[in-house]
Design a protein around this nucleic acid. Structure first.
Length: 113
DNA sequence: TTGCTGACCGACG
DNA sequence: CCGTCGGCCAGCA
C-alpha cells in the first residue's frame, strides 16, 4: 500500500464492495474483470489483506467458483461469513451458497468496461 | 536481494 | 474420475 493507492488490492476491494446486497461473486470473476484471469490467487490474497483497507470489504460475498465458502476459515469467526450471507438473504448449506448460479454477480457483465 | 507462499482456476494425463 | 501442475502479483523471512 503505497501512496498511489491504485494497487491491485485496491481494485479487488473496489469490485468486492461493488457487489450488490444479497449477491455473491467469485475470485476468478474479479480477477478476469481486472484483466488477469490467472491471478485469481492474488484476489484471495487481496482479501487476506482486506484488513489493511481503510473501509471494510465484504469478503463474505466473495467465494470460489464452486460457490463454496473457501475463505470462511480466514474470518474472525468461521460462522461469521455464513451469518453475514444469511443475513443478506443468501442461503448457505454445508459451507456452500445455495442458488449460487442465481445469486452469482459477475462484474464482467454488470460493470463491463 | 532472492525465493517461497497464498481464501484460485483451468488444463492435462 | 481424480490427482497434479503451471500461472498470475504482492507480501514477508
Amino acid at each position: 500500500m503505497n501512496a498511489d493507492g491504485n494497487s491491485f488490492f485496491r481494485d479487488v476491494w473496489d469490485v468486492a464492495r461493488a457487489v450488490p446486497y444479497g449477491r455473491v461473486t467469485s475470485y476468478g470473476a474479479i480477477a478476469r474483470y481486472l484483466g488477469s484471469a490467472r491471478s485469481a490467487r492474488m484476489v484471495g490474497w487481496a482479501m487476506n489483506a482486506s484488513h489493511t483497507a481503510d473501509e471494510p470489504v465484504p469478503a463474505h460475498r466473495v467465494v470460489n467458483r464452486n460457490g463454496q465458502l473457501s475463505g470462511k476459515h480466514h474470518f474472525p469467526s468461521s460462522d461469521l461469513m455464513c451469518q453475514l450471507l444469511e443475513s443478506e438473504g443468501v442461503e448457505v448449506k454445508d459451507d456452500q451458497v445455495v442458488r449460487f448460479g442465481q445469486l452469482f454477480w459477475d462484474p464482467m457483465v454488470e460493470l463491463k468496461v
